[in-house]
Nucleic acid binder design. Structure first.
Lengths: 217, 217
DNA sequence: CGATTTCGAGAGCAGTGCTCTCGCTCGAGA
DNA sequence: TCTCGAGCGAGAGCACTGCTCTCGAAATCG
């Protein structure tokens, strides 16, 4: 429908201006020249509007990351990894509030429904693909795992990438979380007065993440 | 004062139950048997209450981390690093909403005042101390930095730990952010259906972070 | 004792999410 | 062609929010 898109567009604008907690259904309706109750024809509740925005954000981020990977399809896997990392970072810096919506503190009283899962997985799946290429080219896994982690690592590998050794999958999941630590700290201002040249810092840190994924030991 | 403490206590209870965005001054006052306007004698606004809670949370986390470090004072630096990491994780898992308050998406329209800086720095300073010990014992820095990062790395080192080589300080800042990526993903539910044995996974990832801080290569 | 400060109560304003009812419009079936 | 129903928006209203203002009681200080 046309109206739902207009609502989401206006909501996104308010999101960028004010943040999720300040997103007001009435203000969206006002800006659209409707009355607030009319909005409930399209979204059963404010949370459902948020869900829509979350799915859109995941998809937009996924698209951005996939485009970056496609553009670097002829480069080495490490360069492709870096390209995706930088694309994700750039997307987050350009839309901090949307980033906060999907990777920041969850909106209280609201838990993302199952419908968000496919969109949310896109970046993760993309990273798995890159690591798979890396493993095919290099074929050496990172350090062996401690015994206590082996069952879990095997389980994760079976779930996420049965063709890769558990050490690689484990390292990949960790690198994924750590990547979001780097980006989150920057987006949420934790690097203020600590890191200044964040571009260079991020590039280096992301490259070292890649290095940790495939280097011997 | 006695009353401000009671207000913060009740607010913390509501925070744990509902989250920051749902924190209602009126509800706090109601629970305390006062009227909402009376609360403004103690906190000029809702945001100031939040600031109070944020500082308390930073201090509580800092204390927890420092206690863990103190307990492991005779262990190796790597064990001490791991002890602090696990203490931070444990604190976060026990108080997810307070963790979200300080390390999640910033509350919109609200920017933390300067007064939070000392409390916010405690864990970082603690990690620097541990890395300093590590460097004194091992004395080998991680991989050399790319040229583009050298000026920034020097600047960071001068700011944070002038007695340590820029490579170590840079690696430390990155490890710090990555640590919070690991914890944030777990606290905010991003590991749901991905990582199950999160305890073991975290221990391994945190240990590898330490390894990356000081390993030769 | 008197004056002043401190504190809580209460009313009230503007805003919020959400529900309910009521008309209008438009398109498909008889 | 007429009718009926579904879809849609308006409006009023409920319970709630943060916040301001005024007023009266209590406690503290000179």
């Amino acid at each position: 429908m046309e109206v739902t898109a207009a609502i989401k567009d206006e909501a996104r604008r308010q999101l960028a201006a004010e943040g999720a907690a300040r997103l007001s259904l009435r203000a969206v309706a006002r800006e659209l020249g409707m009355v607030s109750s009319a909005l409930y024809r399209y979204f059963p509740s404010r949370d459902d509007l948020l869900t829509g925005l979350i799915i859109d954000a995941y998809d937009s981020l996924g698209e951005t990351a996939e485009a970056a990977a496609a553009e670097a399809v002829d480069a080495t896997w490490a360069q492709r990894w870096l390209a995706v990392c930088e694309a994700v970072r750039g997307w987050a810096l350009a839309r901090p509030h949307e980033y906060a919506l999907i990777y920041g503190s969850p909106v209280p009283g609201y838990s993302a429904p199952e419908t968000t899962i496919p969109a949310a997985s896109r970046v993760g799946l993309l990273l798995i693909d890159i690591v798979r290429d890396a493993y095919r080219q290099r074929g050496n896994a990172p350090a062996p795992l401690p015994a206590e982690l082996e069952p879990e690592a095997r389980r994760m590998a079976a779930d996420l990438a049965p063709d890769l050794p558990p050490e690689v999958v484990t390292a990949m999941v960790a690198a994924w979380a750590q990547l979001y630590g780097l980006i989150g700290f920057e987006v949420f201002g934790q690097f203020n007065k600590v890191v200044e040249d964040r571009e260079a810092f991020f590039r280096h840190a992301a490259a070292r993440l890649a290095h940790g994924l495939m280097a011997p030991r």
